[in-house]
Design a protein around this nucleic acid. Structure first.
Lengths: 234, 234
DNA sequence: TGCAAGTTTTTTATCGATATTTTTTGTAAA
DNA sequence: TTTACAAAAAATATCGATAAAAAACTTGCA
């Protein structure tokens, strides 16, 4: 017995190999380690992720439902492609959903909700005003802050869909972040925080729309520049 | 060789056994053949659906991502539970998304879009005014009509999420429909059709909101009556 | 009777092997 | 050179078997 069947080496919250593979693949797609449109060959992935074919196929099936992977008939899996239209689509819908979630949140939020916003904003502020501006750290803090804002939203389905769109957006943003563009998003975050704490729904919704739009625009710009550079090389 | 590996007996668009299992399970959950919260034992399902464990697990994984099935650690799969809160949640979000899809559709719809609305409305009208009022037939025509209304919407993500919510809603409605409550939804459909063809976004959105709310209310009422009856028996 | 520890049974998660389909490669004719 | 076809290679989808975990069932003891 060389090795126990399920050695508890999983650091994250993955209870099964299937979950582990799902989370890793998801992360690798979001962070660009797996390129858009890349073929995902089971036999190859087996080696990379150290799991068998069955858990891999399960993970890929789930990712297909999440829209991170495409599957075709008897022709296997691919990483979902990326496009300008897709980014625009995701952006528009994310704005709609985040506005809705934020409105509900402002309506139902209690003291704990307020505290969490203040706390996560503070942490985000620290990263945004620091010298190094570590993109990974920023992503984390940014996510925490946005999560705190909509924490008062009680709709399970809204949260589910929002989560998917946030991560889809993150995939696009990551590609842009890798080239690292510092920006003045801080004011927008501040306005967002203040509007939420003031329970001003209209103002908060405007702020979030503005904020997401701006982020998407920057991402789009970098995306185009990269596409341009690639063309020049070829 | 008793039987070829993949005999082309699939009537629907399922290219693999996995797809087949997915579609059948989905349908059985939506139509109530599989009860809410029911345990889904792989070994048992194997016999029912005539496929092996692997395609079944893949199908269940996808259904988990769709929210029709819940999965827990090493404790297998269950049909997703149903509750009044869940219905309310689905209803609210469906209204938001269908309004959005309808608006985009009205904006971009062309002649073909108009024709399809007229055609599907006509078919729906026939069922609604007929004597027998076959619920299955009505479901089909109702779906076609709603699909036609938002056919002009170009957002892939909006359509994806809307599709999920529509089917989730359908699951609740089916439970109510089995007891068969005839109603006067016809006027609402007519108003919806006219507003869409008149390209009156505001009016169409009001109509769709009204319509979905009413449907949900009726469903909720039947749901409560059924729950009440069950309590009396016990 | 109640209940706790150990044992059996059931069920789940996974792997390796196999049949099937798709893709690639090779070859000969137009 | 291109096209068409056939054979080989690769990859996919699936099944049966197996190890591990959870649930059900004893059985001994207060």
């Amino acid at each position: 017995m060389a090795r126990t069947y399920n050695d508890q080496t999983e650091q994250n919250g993955a209870k099964t190999l299937s979950d582990q593979a799902y989370l890793q693949l998801r992360s690798d797609i979001i962070h660009g380690a797996l390129q858009p449109d890349e073929k995902l060959r089971i036999e190859h992935l087996r080696g990379e992720y150290g799991v068998g074919a069955s858990p891999l196929r399960e993970a890929l099936s789930r990712l297909t439902a999440d829209g991170f992977v495409t599957a075709e008939g008897q022709r296997g899996f691919r990483v979902a492609p990326m496009s300008e239209e897709d980014l625009a689509d995701i952006t528009r819908l994310r704005i709609l959903l985040e506005k809705q979630a934020l409105s509900q949140s402002i309506e139902h939020g209690d003291d704990a909700w307020e505290s969490r916003i203040v706390a996560t904003f503070y942490q985000l502020e620290k990263v945004e005003e620091s010298e190094e501006r570590d993109p990974a750290e920023w992503e984390l803090r940014n996510h925490d802050f946005h999560e705190a804002l909509i924490a008062g939203c009680t709709s399970k389905w809204l949260r589910r869909f929002y989560g998917i769109l946030y991560d889809q957006h993150k995939r696009y943003r990551n590609i842009a972040l890798s080239t690292e563009i510092p920006r003045d998003l801080h004011q927008e975050h501040e306005e967002l925080r203040n509007a939420a704490l003031a329970r001003d729904t209209k103002r908060a919704c405007d702020a979030i729309e503005q904020h997401i739009m701006r982020t998407a625009e920057i991402t789009l710009k970098v995306l185009r520049e990269e596409a341009h550079k690639e063309q020049e090389i070829a």
